[in-house]
Design a protein around this nucleic acid. Sequence first.
DNA 1: CGCTCCTTTGGTACCGGTTACATAAACCGG
DNA 2: CCGGTTTATGTAACCGGTACCAAAGGAGCG
Lengths: 349, 349
Amino acid sequence: MEDAEPKSPQRRRMSGRASVTIRDVARHAGVSVATVSRALRGSDLVHPSTRERVDAAIEELRFTPSQLGRSLAERRHAANGIVFPDLSGPFYAEVVLGYEEVAATLGRSVLILSTQNRESADEMVLDLAGRVDGLAVFGRTVHDDVVAEVVQRGVPVVLMARTEIQGADSVRTENVDAATSVVEHLLAHGHRRMAFLGDPSDSTDVAERWAGFRGALAQAGAEVPERTIRAGFKEDDGARVAAGLVADGLPDVVVCANDELALGLTVALAEQGIQVPGDVAVTGWDDVMAARYAGLTTVRQPMREMGARAARLLDARISGDRSEPRHDVLTTQLVVRRSCGPHPKEAHR
Amino acid sequence: MEDAEPKSPQRRRMSGRASVTIRDVARHAGVSVATVSRALRGSDLVHPSTRERVDAAIEELRFTPSQLGRSLAERRHAANGIVFPDLSGPFYAEVVLGYEEVAATLGRSVLILSTQNRESADEMVLDLAGRVDGLAVFGRTVHDDVVAEVVQRGVPVVLMARTEIQGADSVRTENVDAATSVVEHLLAHGHRRMAFLGDPSDSTDVAERWAGFRGALAQAGAEVPERTIRAGFKEDDGARVAAGLVADGLPDVVVCANDELALGLTVALAEQGIQVPGDVAVTGWDDVMAARYAGLTTVRQPMREMGARAARLLDARISGDRSEPRHDVLTTQLVVRRSCGPHPKEAHR
DNA sequence: CGCTCCTTTGGTACCGGTTACATAAACCGG
DNA sequence: CCGGTTTATGTAACCGGTACCAAAGGAGCG
């Protein structure tokens, strides 16, 4: 009746508390492990009285089923991954938030990985891929062939803000139309000489914004700059180019690839006595919180929605959806504030 | 010599690609699984020529060891969890970033969970605890007894910005001294009637700030308000109290529990024609990016360091550190900007 | 030349669950 | 009272690795 002879040589985990397993529960309740397992998953046919005994044993032993054992047997991780470059800045956090929210609702945990220029990023992504049922990858955090490898291993992948890859879904935000809106708005202000700050080779998004920018200028018959002013993504990068901009002669407006650049630039210009929008107009991209307080005209992107969308796409794939890859494009919105100059008629908040 | 008779009735996974296991590799290389396992982990004693054969087989079969199988056998997840309330706002992202960075360096993946008032938060945390080797918990995201339960199960826990719990490490930021600095600075400005915006019952941090605030005022012989102006944590909450503040007669300064409150309040006041700092001074807490652009005087907290610290503490515990729980307190720094009024001598950036 | 000792390798029992299949008990109408 | 279902439970084979223990084959040595 009791658990008598201790036969296994080494017993339990040496450090920490002994973890109680499903077999302990079974013995304690006087049933088989199969029955305990059934009782555990609720659904099945177990006699009420038996279930009661099992529940009592579980309670008494403070048993918690091991996620590992379960996942191994079920051959699913019940977890999704998300890879992004940096997370610093207010931008990525929103994406992760949207992603986590949906994933959690769907009963999946979320594993995050920030590659931040780590040289071992590729391996880390491959490792991560081995721990999840699906993976969302933001921007160009990792080489195409690594993504391909992950896909090839049968792990569903959804790309965010990145050029499409064979066999993977993707979610992006609209860039060309938005750039056109920005340019048109600036033209309406009377601005003509426009510069673009950002590095198109940095990301698909920037490349598209630059293309849209040029296109709109050409369309309007305005002067189209040869090249962008190269810069990274941070406030520092924006600040760094201020001096050169002044030396080369200020344009009417600087369209920046993101808000941080625009804000950094604005501050650096002010330190040289140059006022925005008085002496030069500036626009950004993303509509981060600071943009509101700095009065920066920018383009709002539905970041949270992007994360949520990615999580839902992944869920569908994991659930067996074998249809053609989808490529969603989310719409963006011009947000006009004072950094682009005084506006005669536009709404201003 | 070959793999001949297929005896197992159902073969492989039905959906998706067949996953190749260590036994496939063993058969292919003509060795035992033990040898493959050894070769895999590098370190062991395997004859170079054998290792070569195994590597070839691995390569050829495109074999990737299953993290699940490995974790189950090794009885470790090689993953840490982090639980926080919201992640929205620029604040938590920094914590997560610091945490992830250290955890990744230590070879641990990071699972995130945002509780955001989900009613099922408790279960979710318990579930998460079953998937990790250690857990960081931010603020009062979850009930004390749930944390206790996790600790009781033998999962190391480190609390962040939260009152201590028996058996768990904790990391906090300093609040009382900081509040004192804020008050002293404001007194030096000549401000006397000070109000405090925030809800001390919301978090330990706010409670301590409020206590420090009162203490410093009392110390200086200044008027000590009876109670705080209750509010949440968001810009909206700050905006909501503006009208009441005006109606009740403006104090000299409003010390806010965080930057978002301060910023929301400032904007709402401006809409009523009240200028900061001209008509009333305002200070915040956290030093988020927007605070810089809004010229908000605030207290900077080393959020990234807090995350990093938590990850390191957890690592030590997971590695078997059985010493007394540690309770680290990180120092904070007053950041003076223009929202507290014109400063005769102070440095200003 | 026989006997230790060491290096490599194989066999196999785990880790902690799930589940197909077999079996036993209970129910049911004829 | 009996064969046929239906329901409840047990047995054992997985899932995919790790690691202990034993065995095989040389090498070194008296």
